[in-house]
């Protein structure tokens, strides 16, 4: 009996996501991957790096590579505005990496039930999405962080 109840709780446990805007869409990033969110600072180009890496920034004395999600997802090139932010992600190996987003909207709690697997028609080959979350009427694409970080060129 009590076992059953426990199971229920685990099922309903919610994960928190940072909702960001890139282009016209809203995306969710699992908060457990996030180290920090910083304002845009000077990005230094790294020659010969893959195009979707815009370069590196100085984050408190550490050199952190920064990726353009727009370039990664073959969208229009970044427009840097006042609301642009760099989200610093923690990598498995212990390093850090930044991704540029247009805007950070809010923190959202979603349970497993609120997230649908992307349908096969939506899920193209170069997808970095592993689900679509529903927040009222709004749809939020949940990023699969490992595939963003992964070096394999989107093909």
């Amino acid at each position: 009996m009590s076992d059953l109840a426990m199971y229920d709780v685990v099922e309903k446990e919610k994960k928190q996501y940072i909702v960001v805007k890139i282009g016209g869409e809203h995306y969710g990033i699992d908060i457990s991957y996030i180290d920090n969110i910083v304002r845009l600072s000077k990005i230094t180009r790294v020659p010969k790096a893959p195009l979707y890496y815009r370069g590196v920034i100085n984050l408190r004395g550490e050199v952190v590579p920064v990726m353009s999600l727009r370039r990664r997802m073959d969208l229009d090139d970044d427009e840097f505005t006042d609301s642009s932010r760099i989200i610093i992600l923690k990598l498995d190996g212990g390093g850090l990496m930044g991704v540029i987003v247009d805007e950070v909207k809010e923190v959202l709690s979603l349970s497993e039930d609120d997230i649908e697997a992307p349908s096969s028609t939506l899920k193209s080959k170069n997808s970095f999405i592993n689900g679509v979350g529903k927040n009222g009427d709004e749809l939020i694409s949940i990023f699969e962080i490992s595939s963003i970080i992964g070096d394999n060129e989107a093909s």
Partner: peptide
Amino acid sequence: LGKLDNNKLI
């Protein structure tokens, strides 16, 4: 350079 460390020129 973290993820970008395997750069040839840098």
